[in-house]
């Protein structure tokens, strides 16, 4: 009773206390690789979010960039400059700063496309499982068709076709949204399948029937009573999906159908850097490559751990 009273007084503090005491966090502290992955992931996330305050330079403001500083190697090499710790690119932009700003767009596209894909997938899954009938068979056939092609192929096709379909002058402005749409469109079936299966099972359970008898509106039953059953698998799918989305965005930007060079993400930075590989300026492409690897690897390792930790059989 006393804890309940405390919880009602300061809900946020109680919530934090519950998280701190949870099995999941204990499990995380016991798994060094997962903990390391979580730390790397958080560091890159925080660096990206606070890029305007953390970055030593503002790389995309022409007023502060000078060609005098172009193609500086990393500071510890001959000709390096400690103002640019990891060197500069051909336009004199500081590599550390471009990476911080670049990760910002990379992560935004990643998180937004996972959110959009999950939202559409969950909505379709709930509707198909609850209503059934022709809607269900049509959407699940569509999901089957999509899943017979690899995700990356779909994202490439969607993005390519959207770019070909839209007038060229809009490309730069809407590039972010095209990317988010393409990646989300390629991953919604995963969410839809999991949610649909859970909805089919829950539909006949007593607690759902009880809610129906009490005249609770269908969408409230679905969101409040059915959806909580699949929070753990959805969390795992989303984590793995985030790693995929980040890599897919980088791949699309790398092949030149993603973000334009004026707003470079990690993939576009690697693409730009590739032009300088042959003249020996390796840092322009290898430093963003390493950042991308660290990000994808830490999200994947964290996702692996999460899958095991949330699996009741593994406990």
């Amino acid at each position: 009773m006393e804890t309940a009273a405390a919880a009602s007084r300061t809900p946020v503090a109680a919530w934090l206390r519950r998280i701190a005491a949870s099995d999941l966090l204990y499990n995380l502290r016991q798994t060094p690789t997962a903990l390391a992955a979580a730390l790397v992931m958080s560091a890159i996330f925080l660096g990206a979010v606070f890029a305007p305050w953390l970055a030593p330079h503002t790389p995309f403001d022409p007023a502060t960039v000078s060609l005098v500083n172009a193609l500086n190697p990393p500071a510890w090499l001959a000709g390096g400059d400690w103002r640019f710790v990891l060197g500069t690119d051909d336009q004199g932009r500081d590599i550390v700063s471009t990476i911080l700003y670049g990760s910002r767009i990379s992560l935004f596209v990643g998180v937004a496309s996972v959110a959009l894909g999950a939202f559409v997938g969950i909505a379709v899954g709930l509707a198909c499982g609850w209503i059934g009938g022709p809607l269900d068979s049509a959407m699940m056939r569509l999901a089957d068709i999509q899943m017979s092609l690899p995700d990356i192929m779909l994202a490439l096709l969607f993005s390519g076709i959207a770019r070909a379909a839209l007038p060229r002058e809009y490309h730069v402005d809407i590039a972010v949204w095209v990317l988010i749409f393409a990646i989300a469109a390629s991953n919604w079936p995963q969410y839809a399948r999991v949610v649909r299966a859970a909805t089919l099972v829950a539909r006949d359970k007593e607690y759902v029937q009880a809610a129906q008898v009490m005249d609770v509106r269908p969408w409230r039953i679905l969101v409040g009573h059915v959806l909580p059953n699949v929070v753990s698998p959805l969390l795992v799918i989303s984590t793995v999906g985030l790693a995929f989305a980040i890599l897919a965005e980088a791949a699309l930007s790398f092949v030149g159908i993603g973000m334009p060079p004026t707003q470079p993400t990690l993939g576009a930075l690697i693409r730009i850097g590739n032009n300088f590989l042959f003249s020996g300026e390796w840092w322009i492409s290898l430093v963003p490559s390493a950042t991308l690897l660290a990000l994808a690897l830490s999200v994947n390792v964290f996702g692996d751990w999460l899958r095991d930790a949330l699996n009741p059989k593994g406990r």
Partner: peptide, 8 residues
């Protein structure tokens, strides 16, 4: 290897 993107 699985996390390292092809282009990198």
């Amino acid at each position: 290897g699985v996390s390292l993107p092809t282009f990198a």
